[in-house]
């Protein structure tokens, strides 16, 4: 059974990592677009954000997408581990006495596993603080009688250390994306000589927008400190 489920070689495993990775990249766009509503003036942000959250949690399509998302994170992580262990074996136990290989590739491209692991821990914290209470915990209601996720978010971002955690985590994500976005197309074989340079720029632009966007939100909330309405 496990044999059948496991993919035949590193190339197919990398295809799976690339597809799940790109799906996560796609999700980040939607996630960021939705969260930019937090930047609206407090009163409107509260109503609109809570309305949006409720809409998402009742939509069957979003439900399916969210299950694909959970599966993607799990598969992406498992195959990261499988490939890393195999790569350890391939390298062998005898290392170089003098090793300057780091000079010929960017550091973040060599440390995708560490960056990914940090992202994974961030995801656990992130989901425990917002996703879990919203789905299973006690959340106060807003004026319109909707769960007040906006309040939960704003209260969390009032702590400077929490904002700092987010900023650092998003930088980690940024470096993961800086290599990951381009790498995924290369892994899938969609990295054509002619469009290669264009793809490089698309990857950098994507990374910049996503990283800057997710960093801006907690900082913005922290400094404008909007008081949530009663």
């Amino acid at each position: 059974m496990f044999r059948k489920l496991s993919l035949p070689n590193s190339l197919t495993r990398k295809n799976l990592m690339a597809l799940t990775g790109l799906f996560l990249c796609f999700f980040l766009v939607i996630h960021l677009a939705g969260n930019l509503q937090l930047l609206l003036p407090a009163e409107r942000a509260q109503l609109q954000y809570n309305h949006y959250s409720e809409l998402l949690s009742h939509n069957i399509l979003i439900k399916i997408v969210s299950y694909v998302l959970y599966a993607s994170i799990i598969a992406h992580t498992i195959y990261a581990l499988v490939l890393t262990l195999r790569s350890r074996a391939a390298v062998g136990s005898q290392g170089y006495a003098y090793d300057r290989r780091g000079a010929v590739s960017p550091w973040y491209s060599r440390n995708m596993g560490i960056l990914g692991t940090l992202i994974f821990f961030f995801l656990v914290v992130h989901m425990a603080n917002f996703w879990y209470p919203y789905k299973f915990g006690e959340v106060p209601m807003d004026m319109a009688g909707r769960k007040d996720l906006y309040r939960v978010v704003v209260i969390a971002y009032r702590e400077w250390w929490y904002v700092a955690l987010y900023v650092v985590s998003m930088l980690v994500l940024g470096f993961h994306l800086l290599h990951g976005f381009y790498s995924a197309f290369q892994s899938l074989g969609l990295y054509h000589t002619k469009y290669g340079r264009w793809m490089n720029w698309a990857g950098r632009a994507y990374t910049l927008v996503i990283t800057a966007g997710f960093i801006l939100i907690p900082i913005w909330v922290f400094f404008t400190k909007p008081t949530p309405l009663p």
Binding site: S10, L11, R13, K14, L83, R86, S87, A89, A90, V91, R101, V104, S105, P106, S109, R110, M112, H179, Y182, S183, Q186, S187
Partner: peptide
């Protein structure tokens, strides 16, 4: 027994 490619470009 070669490892996988992570596209580091080294």
């Amino acid at each position: 027994g070669f490892g996988h490619c992570t596209n580091t470009g080294a």
